[in-house]
Simulated scan of single mutants.
Amino acid sequence: MSDVGMKNSRPLSPHLQIYKPILTMVMSILHRITGAALYFGTILLAWWLVAAAAGPDYFEFVNELYGSILGRLVLFGFTWALVHHMLGGMRHFIWDMGHGFGTEAREWLARATIAGSVILTILLWIVGYAVR
């Protein structure tokens, strides 16, 4: 039997080059990326804890790395990823409860997640520097 006729009648699977990116699609991709970035940040946290257990000299070395401009930039990115992923999880929780499926509600939740993650991250860093 020949499958030539079946190949031509089957629909093509759409992919990212066919879909127009909408905010909720971008947020879904970003939620996955921030989730993956949290693995890297957890390694940094574990390294800091190991350094604290290893002794004051090694702890000071790791603190100097994290206190550098690049270190603080990475820690700021980790903080944003953590807050953004948390707010994205709350958005999914709202959907799990059966709310927020309308077009306007989905867009509002996506925009609130973006704005909230940026604002909360900046506030956390301001509080962190104020307490320090």
Results as ranks from 00 to 15, higher is better:
Y129A: 13
L120W: 08
H99F: 15
W47V: 15
L65N: 08
L109T: 05
D96T: 09
L75R: 13
A54T: 03
G88I: 00
P11E: 03
Q17N: 11
P21H: 03
I43N: 02
M6E: 15
V131A: 12
L73K: 10
V118H: 04
T24M: 06
S13H: 12
D3N: 13
I22M: 08
L73W: 10
A53Y: 02
P56S: 07
L45E: 09
W125K: 02
L124M: 14
S117M: 06
F40H: 00
W47K: 07
R91Q: 09
A130F: 08
S13N: 10
T34S: 08
I22F: 02
L109R: 07
L12A: 14
T103Q: 14
D96E: 09
E64G: 09
W95D: 06
P56D: 07
N63D: 09
L124V: 06
H84L: 08
F61E: 14
R72T: 06
F93H: 13
A130K: 07
M6D: 14
A110I: 01
W48Y: 15
H92R: 12
H15P: 00
F101L: 05
P21E: 02
I69C: 00
L73Q: 11
A105M: 07
K7Y: 15
H85S: 11
M90P: 03
M27W: 04
A52S: 12
